[in-house]
Design a protein around this nucleic acid. Structure first.
Lengths: 217, 217
DNA sequence: GGTGATTGGATAGTGGCACTCCCCAAGGAG
DNA sequence: CTCCTTGGGGAGTGCCACTATCCAATCACC
């Protein structure tokens, strides 16, 4: 198919597809002659993937390129490719390690990993950007005066581990070997907005259940 | 305290505080004379809250203003204020209702709410932006060819309901009546990055557990 | 074979956003 | 009285995700 049809079937404007091509998010089509390129179903699929990452996952264009680079890197073993792709995702800004709240958050986070028995990967996990994000969020909450119990964090962690198990079970049963990394990355990028939406819906529901709507009080 | 000290204690540059003041994210200090304003602990707290929403929660400045407006609106009952604040948070772009994947996602989402027994708030919930986000994410996954089981979604929803129960229990025990809405909003804004970080860590851990690191294969 | 429309590619421009720079006038210190 | 500091406000900056325009090659139709 040609650019116009690719645009038609994906719903992405032609100018935007050109931009993605320039940015290296899509591989160029097969050059038929100087003025015509042919795109196939794989291009369409990749384009939809890119769009989903950008629009649903709010991933910056430069990061999409990086993530896809890792996903496509057949030279690396699977866990490393997944890890590399996840590490490339946008993260919170670097924490200030001199801040007392940040140091305290590190301690709590380390204890948490210990309790969860995630220590086998601890060397890796403690330098992961996700670990940093966790520490930053914990420190921010504490700085605002919310001194939550580490047990609460443990409960959250168990819930999210449950979600991760569901993700990877899904990857197991539904994806071919070659697609596993891609599916797992999508698990991180597209499932997260879904979880977030469910979380907010659940909050609204639970709040209404506990306190009613209050409009008759 | 004066602007310089507010900046010092919060770690936010003076120019940025001025910008927040101009944008209405902070109330002006008490004017002492034409050239001096006095800020108090409440300003500091509010500034930290704003910073956390922007940097950790990635909430746009205009949205922070809107959310805080709802949080501060004492005229409304609590559930409504919480709902209004959550609804103001940034969401995915409007779905194309003519798209077959979007319509199918609507059906699955409605069934899900039914199964969960969240139907008491259904009229509200189905017009919630979170509901829209959910539908968009579901449609995007399907469009990419991942035909997951609705049961999987139900399992995710139960997990996130568990998280919401933890959130609201925390609000119950740790916040004064006046702070409840603020805490609940923070629950949506600061707990979410924490959950996301835990989710990614859990994925890395679970992936390493199942497949090893693969570097000796 | 000529002619106007279409296509793909490159370049430059746009709009939004979160700051950030700079200047000014008012205080305050010596 | 002079110089330094401070708060306020407007204008500018840098980044990012597009998007509009231009150009030349080709294709459809006459």
């Amino acid at each position: 198919m040609r650019l116009a049809e690719l645009s038609e079937r994906s719903g992405v404007p032609i100018a935007t597809i050109k931009y993605y091509l320039r940015e290296g998010l899509l591989t160029p089509g097969r050059q038929i002659n100087a003025r015509t390129s042919e795109y196939d179903e794989e291009h369409l699929r990749r384009l939809r993937l890119v769009r989903a990452m950008i629009q649903v996952g709010r991933v910056p264009v430069a990061t999409v390129r990086e993530v896809l680079g890792h996903v496509d890197d057949d030279a690396l073993p699977r866990t490393i490719r997944l890890g590399a792709a996840l590490w490339a995702l946008p993260q919170v800004p670097e924490p200030d390690e001199d801040d007392e709240y940040v140091r305290a958050a590190h301690d709590v986070a380390d204890e948490l990993l210990e309790s969860l028995g995630w220590s086998n990967a601890k060397a890796l996990v403690t330098i992961s950007p996700s670990y940093r994000s966790l520490v930053v969020a914990m420190a921010a909450l504490r700085r605002l005066g919310y001194d939550w119990d580490p047990q609460l964090l443990l409960a959250y962690a168990r819930l999210m581990h449950g979600a991760a198990v569901l993700d990877l079970d899904f990857v197991e049963t539904h994806a071919s070997e070659a697609e596993k990394v891609e599916t797992a990355v999508l698990g991180a990028i597209l499932v997260e907005p879904m979880l977030q939406a469910l979380h907010r819906l659940a909050q609204e529901e639970e709040s209404a259940r506990r306190y009613g709507f209050g409009d008759r009080e």
